[in-house]
């Protein structure tokens, strides 16, 4: 799925059909299922009951399975995510980034954007914005993605 060399409208066709086919299947399954009338909550207070259910306390007016252990596990998950994200994102030693000499905040597409802006401020910057945020729909101008950008 990620190995296709180029993107254009033609190559969106197959993924589009896949997604559409899945939706048709799901819709058929959903619409042919017959549900009884919903039981609802009968006006019982929902938010406090969520609190009781999450901490596994007696007192909630709406039945629920207990989520105390899930709450404890998710504490560990967040610690793990924190440690992982900090380890990955931290700059090395002397404040330089690994493998790249300067920081660019534009997704790496517009090293030459200044020259564009000089030549034609409006359309140039617009085209850059389209390219940066959404390279896929920039119809026909995918070649604008610079190939010599790779650091190292």
């Amino acid at each position: 799925m990620t190995t296709r060399p180029r993107l254009n409208l033609g190559s969106h066709l197959i993924p589009g059909l896949v997604a559409l086919a899945l939706f048709v299947v799901l819709a058929l399954v959903f619409l042919t299922a017959s549900f009884p009338a919903p039981q609802g909550f009968d006006g019982a207070p929902i938010t406090p009951s969520i609190g009781y259910a999450m901490f596994d306390l007696a007192g909630g007016q709406i039945p629920s399975e207990s989520f105390l252990i899930a709450f404890e596990i998710i504490d560990l998950v967040l610690i793990a995510a924190l440690a992982a994200a900090v380890m990955l994102a931290r700059r090395e030693g002397d404040g330089k980034l690994v493998g790249i000499e300067e920081i660019r905040t534009d997704g790496g597409h517009s090293r030459d954007s200044t020259t564009d802006a000089d030549a034609d401020p409006d359309s140039g910057s617009d085209a850059e914005v389209t390219n940066d945020t959404d390279p896929n729909t920039a119809t026909g101008s995918d070649t604008a993605t610079p190939t010599g950008e790779e650091a190292n």
Binding site: E65, A80, A83
Partner: peptide, 21 residues
């Protein structure tokens, strides 16, 4: 429970992503 399954599966997965990288 499926809730515990999903959350503990994420606890096993998230550190693994970072370890591979």
């Amino acid at each position: 429970s499926l809730a515990t399954v999903f959350i503990s599966l994420e606890l096993a997965s998230l550190p693994s992503y970072a370890l591979v990288a």
